[in-house]
Design a protein around this nucleic acid. Structure first.
Lengths: 161, 161
DNA sequence: GCCAGAGATGCGACCTGGATGCAACAGGCA
DNA sequence: TGCCTGTTGCATCCAGGTCGCATCTCTGGC
């Protein structure tokens, strides 16, 4: 399964290759007995082209700009399917809805409980915690799936005054 | 606000003192212009006597064992009020409902995404992450509020086979 | 090119967890 | 004791997400 998800893990920065990645995921889908549909192609284009961390609803709005009939539940189902294939992952950033992004963008999240600001943190920020959890509890952490809540520099300063 | 929450922070292990703590919180409530009601007293007794990490619904069931008319929304409102006073905190353990426990029980949570098992971890497990987040981003983490998702030893072993 | 059948879709209903508006009730100070 | 205001029960609503089902459409085989 892992080897298949790597098929679309291309070096970033090559603009011409981006739409190819959409096609590669569609090929992956087909190889798993899935079908290539308009809504799936559009959803993948949104995921590859736009910013990361969009909610299902936001993605639906973007897809509906091209195909107004695509239903929100279709977006959910397709995101679910893409997650099963290892193409996208979802993350929970605080109390709100889940957000989705490509699985190739691996990073953790720091979310401010006061102002809602979200910082992307490289996975190695969590290395020490990962080692400690593994050593003390045999627990393998997944730093992408959870947001670490707390307070950003600006809000700490305000609260301190 | 912090000094007030410390008023019920008693050394653990003193069985006789437990119900007194309920009274102390009620006094705290009263000193903030709140009132002492049956539902509040029962809710606090549940919180002080039972295990940690119960959802609002579970607490409601326990309270309703003594007072069947106490409504779930009353439980939510009282938990909210107690949280404002710093007596209880809530934590999100994975995808389910929030869980509540006394603010004096400070620890982080490791939750297995496969089997749902929850491990309580002492706050110092997060020290290295706290230092790194503060150093790199000026971000103060709150390791009690979020669960760290991942996979427990047993599930990792099963997946590895 | 056509067809059959399985996978995908649109739609509405439903579910969980939680918030809110409001009238009635009740704690607690004068 | 009575009044004022905080609290409660109830109904209703909301967000985020899931599900069942009839209909549609993609795709491999002919």
């Amino acid at each position: 399964m892992v080897t298949q998800t790597e098929r679309h893990a291309q070096p970033a920065g090559d603009h011409e290759k981006r739409s190819d990645s959409v096609e590669e995921v569609l090929t992956l889908l087909r190889s798993h007995g899935g079908r290539v549909t308009t809504s799936r192609r559009l959803l993948l284009q949104c995921l590859f082209e736009g910013r990361a961390h969009r909610t299902a609803e936001e993605l639906a709005v973007e897809v509906q700009a091209s195909a107004p009939d695509v239903h929100l539940s279709t977006i959910y189902r397709n995101l679910d399917e893409l997650e099963r294939l290892g193409v996208v992952v979802h993350a929970h950033l605080g109390h709100g809805p889940a957000t989705y992004h490509l699985a190739t963008e691996t990073h953790g999240h720091l979310v401010c409980e006061s102002c809602g600001a979200m910082l992307e943190a490289p996975e190695n920020l969590f290395d020490a915690l990962a080692r400690a959890a593994a050593h003390d509890y045999g627990f393998t952490i997944d730093p992408r799936h959870f947001a670490v809540l707390g307070h950003c520099a600006a809000c700490v300063q305000v609260a301190g005054n």
